[in-house]
């Protein structure tokens, strides 16, 4: 069992699911990805952040989905038949990512990954979710940190909220 795990992780190592959002291609390490499904109708949740599109029913499991474009503060686009949902599992939080188009699964060696440049680009929202840039020949993929993608400022918000509650409870 344990051995299999290690093996599986080995075969997954260095592999990235890449997708297109706006003009750029992004990559997510494959071990975070549970599955990829075609876009299905989303039930909106009122009063949530705009990038949280709502809930979908994934074979009886109800999971939240977020729109990656909106997360990157890119203008929304109409969903079409190329629109996909990448279901990722980050520290047992299962979330669907709505992306414009799935590109491919690529292998990027560690030495081909450069740290993301910080000069001049700091104002770009998507920058903070990118931990590195993978080179494949001439093309580059922006490698996403899924944990930051999901949580980031929301987390601090949440913490703040729970902190308030704790104070009241004293």
């Amino acid at each position: 069992m344990g051995e299999n795990d290690v093996q599986e992780r080995d075969t997954q190592k260095g592999k990235y699911v890449t997708f297109k959002s706006g003009n750029e291609y992004f990559g997510i390490q494959i071990q975070y990805v549970n599955e990829i499904i075609v876009y299905q109708e989303v039930t909106a949740i009122p009063e949530s952040e705009d990038y949280i599109k709502g809930l979908i029913n994934l074979r009886g499991k109800i999971i939240p989905v977020i729109d990656v474009r909106l997360r990157f503060k890119q203008p929304p686009i109409e969903y079409n038949d190329r629109t996909c949902i990448i279901v990722i599992n980050v520290k047992s939080t299962i979330v669907g990512l709505i992306v414009e188009k799935i590109a491919e699964v690529v292998e990027i060696r560690d030495e081909d990954i450069l740290p993301s440049p910080t000069i001049g680009h700091t104002d770009k929202v998507q920058q903070k979710y990118v931990y590195g840039i993978g080179k494949i020949g001439d093309a580059v993929k922006l490698l996403l940190d899924p944990d930051k993608l999901l949580n980031d400022e929301d987390l601090s918000l949440l913490e703040q909220a729970s902190g308030d509650v704790a104070e009241e409870g004293e």
């Binding site: 039930t43 029913n57 109800i62």
Partner: peptide, 27 residues
């Protein structure tokens, strides 16, 4: 009754979600 996933912040007035007969989700 199923809980709304933790990832989504609690919304006042909503206590959960469920799946309807046609597979769609209701709040």
């Amino acid at each position: 009754v199923k809980p709304i996933p933790d990832y989504i912040r609690k919304v006042d007035g909503l206590s959960g979600c469920t799946q309807l007969g046609d597979g769609s989700i209701a709040l």
